[in-house]
Design a protein around this nucleic acid. Sequence first.
DNA 1: CTTGACTCTGGAGCTAACTCAAGGGTCTAT
DNA 2: ATAGACCCTTGAGTTAGCTCCAGAGTCAAG
Lengths: 150, 150
Amino acid sequence: MEQTEFRIGEVATSSGVSVDAVRYYERLKLLPRARRTSGNFRLFGPEAIERVQFIKQAQELGLTLDEIQGLLATGGAEECRRVRDLLNKKIEHLDDKMKAMRNFRRMLARHLLECERELEAHGDAACCPVVAVGKDRRVSSQVRSKTADE
Amino acid sequence: MEQTEFRIGEVATSSGVSVDAVRYYERLKLLPRARRTSGNFRLFGPEAIERVQFIKQAQELGLTLDEIQGLLATGGAEECRRVRDLLNKKIEHLDDKMKAMRNFRRMLARHLLECERELEAHGDAACCPVVAVGKDRRVSSQVRSKTADE
DNA sequence: CTTGACTCTGGAGCTAACTCAAGGGTCTAT
DNA sequence: ATAGACCCTTGAGTTAGCTCCAGAGTCAAG
């Protein structure tokens, strides 16, 4: 039969974080306070595991625990609207980021190509061209006045 | 005529970081040590600005200064190969991340939809469904044995 | 009822990436 | 030559997100 209660260690290992981290999340209210055994051991439901995994995922994409916190509502209509707005913002943000990522990827790929051409051409005498990174980007306009415009 | 020398403040403001950060990058060798005026003021060339911008970009995509450091070679063939390999790894990594991002985006979008449906249907009596995040993801398999397999 | 693995709390310590402060020089416009 | 904006170094402080520790209690198996 399916297990429905988990002690902190199980939650931790089955979602790939430390028990300390789980307690930490609880302190920050990213997890609802777990109920306890008579001996004061935490008992989590399976949704806790899922939530920890959600947290990890979101984190890897650069959200802070604070932002993640915001995505995890528990309330009624008011809260729901707030979460909806946040979701919208976050999605937009993700879209921007994916675009930036594609650009950056292109840049790296270009450097990679240069790198390989250089090695091909000059072998052990090659001189890595990646140093002059960003060579072809418009930059340093409006750096004119040293006493900058307020 | 084009300006070709910049003091630290110009580098900082024109690439959107603090002067402290610029000095910090120099200490970490993300920037080559700048030459100095007779009065010991740093003088940077325009490539410093570009490099700082590169750093910022990379950072926003989740690279650490350490990793970025690795991408900025200065050496010969050996180094070039190292950078090439790193570039390859990073590109692969970026691809993974973009995929994860698309998934996460989909998840958020789904939550958003639920959120809106709920608000539509129940108005001010709505109860945010985002709490039960990750509901439809296969999870908590192999959480069987409490004394985990080493 | 003992043993060994697990858990508890509270608080200190750690890393990354800065930021701030003190105390003192430099530069340039007037 | 002086004011005010800028810069120097050294070193300490900050925030996020944990991790580690001590000292003590709990739980399941044998």
